[in-house]
Write a protein that binds this DNA or RNA. Structure first.
Length: 809
RNA sequence: GCCCGGGUGGUGGAAUCUGGUCAGACACUGGGGGCUUAAACCCCCCUGCUCCUCGAGGGCGUGUGGGUUCGAAUCCCACCCCGGGCACCA
């Protein structure tokens, strides 16, 4: 007996799609509405895992659905190829990162093809290819020209043993994660993108895109906009003004001391003692975790200086303490212990004055052993000369205004968002196209000399400087301005730069005059549906939004937001745990594909549950989906001969086919309801088995063809196979099926009869019946009479098409 | 601590937006039957708990406790638990 054999079927259709370039799409004008479906590009280290399968199965379902509902669909693929894992691999094995990366890309490409994902392969690229990163460099230069890429000194962690800069994550308890040496803080020149300049627009424009609420919230929190005031505190002894940012200008009268971050450049100027040096050095080398802990006991050292509180005129003492962060605000704070938990703690530690200036609303108790944080309409000011009795919000405005008059303050906004540090002292990344000439200074590499190609080196190990510094021939070059000697920038770019614009390049991937053509972009951007893991909710998505806004401002493109709609998929778990090699619970997608076929693998992963939620992998569940597809194939194989179009009176099977079409349509248009869509097709196939003996051949054939057509976005090979065997046609060339409303409606329905909200009977009733008629029918229920037991019907609630509820007393 | 999600059978989930068919689609697992020399595959049936007079019977059931309503898994309030994100941001 012949059986469903996915390997033959899948190879057959993949061959057709490949040979006929089925999924390629042209950039030429086209009257159909466009649809740009994009899954986040894979990061090519190692092999595809089950999360990739889910990601691309999701996107492919959307792409197929849109194609068959009349859209011209762009569904491209590429690889995020630069980055640390390939480089670390190179350090270990000596293999060039390009080799391991390209081996990985080859694996991904092969797998995507064997999964039957409908990709326009003519647009494929890796971000490590010069033809791509040439334009990454070009964009960098445009940002540089705009002052949006700049260099400044920043504090970094430095391991004196390994001679390298460490990422914050590589510092464990103040020590190098690799060699255990105590880490030092160093000020080094680093490259930044001025993303903070876009903070407000990144915040506001979230209103223009359809993203999951939690992702929007995460970005909002990350940007962290706070309104308040900048207030100047003057150190009279040194004649220096120190501005601070505060969200609580209403508490200014309660500012009884002043604290600076250890990184503040003026600390040693204020106090050069060994004690201060020791404290600062300790603070700087502390691990992020250590220093970041809210629960840590407050520490600090007095600086022996004072500043003037601008409203009270008091001299208040200055401290250096590590609970103040250099990166936020001005790196110094006014401390109001009565109304800030951290300041309160510090004041207690150091025996400083705690002066309450905001009173709790009448009737509310005022705890003495903690800071009072209230600042609503009901909280009123005290001990604040000239502002007493004002509500906190009033006082914020009034005090700020009065400071502004005296030139000692102004309203201000502060963000938690920091500029994007993009330089990496690493080999496997996009070179930063900048030169340093002794006579001309820092210069951009001229556009016509791009790309600055990554040279081959033999030693990838980090040495404090980028491994590129060792490539003397490459580093030493001539100055494009004066023709003298110049040196290249040896840092490379953060991988996130590469992926901040790749979706633009897909639109115009072979353009060698520009990164993309503005007119071509108009035909595709924005991405209509972006799909990926929630782990990129902040960085990647924020960076991409920033790039698009900056490029739009420069006139290179016409959208403000890259991703109109975003879908974040949940993870596939195993026994409630993340899959990981160390746990030994990894399910390889290829193992599933080999055993059951790509269609089963794809369908199962979509059937397992709502795609946005995490889902637990189940081996037996896969078998169930395979059984379903197999039943569909067998039904087609055994289908009776007959006409293509259903003839004669509607039968239950015909109605079921229309019902399933309707269900799938709703689920596709709603929010990725793929699990229920597949369930509806399962019901249809079950119905075929139940009714194929008793239904007209044309109805059986129609039902099977419909099942093939509906399952196509999820199981494209089998869908195509089944549809072709029923109709002789190619399913992807056929429009998406529409349910016939006449076949969805029925003449009769099961009228539910309730008594006090409890179901007691069901009676067949005409769909067209009026409310009164329905009530009549329900009153006729024998069960009702039996249950009434002499009680009275007080009221009848009629819900047409559904039920009649009798309220009985 | 703050901000998001989420708690439904032995299991994954459906119904939650828009309150309305004894909640439980679809599937897994389990049970029974058929096919087979046998097993696998496949096909069909049953499968929330519980009580009994075993029936087109009764009761109980969507984390807990309240509330709104003719009617609540669905709406509101409080609480408990689980998952995720952020966390000295002045």
């Amino acid at each position: 007996m012949e059986r469903y054999d996915p390997s033959t079927i899948e190879a057959k259709w993949q061959r057709v799609w490949h040979d006929e370039h089925t999924w390629e799409v042209s950039n030429e004008p086209d009257p159909r509405p466009k649809g740009y479906v994009l899954e986040m590009l894979p990061y090519t280290s190692g092999e595809p895992h089950i999360g990739h399968l889910k990601n691309y199965a999701l996107g492919d379902a959307i792409a197929h659905f849109w194609r068959r509902t009349g859209h011209r669909v762009l569904h491209p693929m590429g690889y995020d190829a630069f980055g640390l894992p390939a480089e670390n691999h190179a350090i270990k094995t000596g293999q060039h990162p390009r080799e391991s990366t390209e081996a990985s890309i080859a694996q991904f490409r092969k797998d995507f093809r064997s999964w039957g994902i409908s990709i326009d392969w003519t647009r494929e690229f890796g971000t490590h290819e010069p033809r791509y990163y040439r334009w990454t460099q070009w964009i960098f230069l445009r940002l540089f020209e705009q002052g949006l890429a700049y260099r400044k000194e920043a504090a970094v962690k430095w391991c004196p043993n390994d001679q390298t800069v460490l990422a914050n994550e590589q510092v464990i308890d103040g020590r190098c994660e690799r060699c255990g040496f105590e880490v030092e803080a160093r000020q080094l020149e680093q490259w930044f993108f001025r993303i903070t300049e876009y903070a407000d627009r990144l915040l506001e424009d979230m209103g223009r895109i359809e993203w999951p609420r939690h992702v929007v919230t995460m970005q909002e929190n990350w940007i962290g906009r706070s309104e308040g005031a900048e207030v100047t505190f003057r150190c009279e002894e040194l004649g220096i003004d120190y501005p601070v940012f505060t969200t609580r200008p209403d508490t200014l009268f309660g500012a009884t001391f002043f604290v600076m971050a250890p990184e503040h450049p003026d600390v040693f100027r204020l106090n050069d003692s060994p004690e201060v040096h020791a404290y600062v050095n300790h603070a700087l080398t502390e691990s992020v975790e250590e220093r970041g802990s809210e629960h840590k006991k407050k520490t600090g050292v007095p600086l022996g200086r004072t500043v003037t509180n601008p409203v009270t005129g008091e001299q208040i003492p200055m401290f250096v303490a590590d609970y103040v962060l250099m990166e936020y605000g001005t790196g110094a704070i006014m401390a109001v212990p009565a109304h800030d938990e951290r300041d309160f703690e510090f004041a207690q530690q150091f025996g400083l004055e705690i002066r309450r200036v905001v009173e709790p609303a009448a009737g509310e108790p005022a705890a003495e052993d903690e800071a009072f944080l209230g600042h609503g309409e009901n909280e009123r000011l005290i001990n604040s000369d000239g502002f007493d009795g004002m509500s906190a919000p009033e006082a914020m405005k009034a005090i700020t205004a009065s400071l502004e008059e005296r030139g000692l303050g102004r309203p201000a906004v502060s963000y938690r968002l920091r500029d994007w540090l993009l330089s990496r002292q690493r080999y496997w990344g996009c070179p930063i196209p900048i030169l340093y000439c002794d006579s001309c200074g820092m210069l951009p590499v001229p556009d016509d000399q791009l790309p600055v190609e990554l040279p081959d080196v033999h030693d990838y190990a980090p040495k404090g400087r980028s491994p590129l510094a060792a490539a003397e021939d490459w580093v030493n070059t001539t100055c494009p301005k004066c023709g003298g000697e110049a040196r290249r920038e040896t840092d490379t770019m953060d991988t996130f730069v590469d992926s901040a614009w790749y979706f633009l390049r897909y639109c115009d991937p072979n353009n060698d005059q520009a990164p993309f053509d503005r007119e071509v972009l108009k035909r595709w951007m924005p991405v209509d549906q972006y799909i990926g893991g929630v782990e990129h909710a902040i960085l990647h998505l924020l960076y991409a939004r920033f790039f698009v806004k900056a490029l739009a401002d420069m006139g290179y493109l016409d959208v403000q937001e890259p991703f109109a709609r975003l879908f974040t998929q949940g993870m596939i778990l195993r026994d409630g745990d993340k899959m990981s090699k160390s746990k030994g619970n990894v399910v390889s997608p290829m193992a599933i594909v080999d055993r059951y076929g790509a269609d089963t693998a794809r369908c199962y992963i979509l059937f397992i549950g709502p795609p946005e939620k995490d889902a637990d992998w189940s081996d037996s569940g896969v078998g169930g989906v395979h059984r379903f597809l197999s039943r569909l194939w067998t039904a087609a194989h055994e289908a009776p001969e007959g006409p293509l179009e259903p003839d004669g009176e509607p039968t239950p099977l015909l109605r079921k086919a229309h019902w399933a079409t309707d269900r799938v349509n709703r689920d596709m248009q709603a929010n990725f309801g793929f699990n229920t869509a597949i369930a509806a097709v399962m019901e249809l196939v079950n119905e075929v088995y139940r009714r194929r003996e008793t239904s007209p051949a044309s109805h059986v054939r129609f039902a099977i063809a419909t099942a093939g057509s509906l399952i196509f976005p999820f199981a494209p090979h089998l869908g195509a196979e089944v549809y072709e065997s029923m109709t002789g046609r190619r399913v992807w060339e056929q429009p998406w099926p529409e349910a016939d409303p006449a076949l969805l409606a029925t003449d009769e329905f099961q009228l539910v009869v309730q008594m006090n909200g409890k179901l007691i009977d069901r009676i067949a009733a005409p769909t067209a019946a009026s409310r009164d008629q329905l009530e009549e029918i329900a009153r006729g229920s024998g069960k009702l009479a039996a249950r009434l037991n002499g009680r009275q019907i007080v009221k009848a609630i009629v819900v047409p098409g559904k039920l009649v509820n009798f309220v009985v007393r």
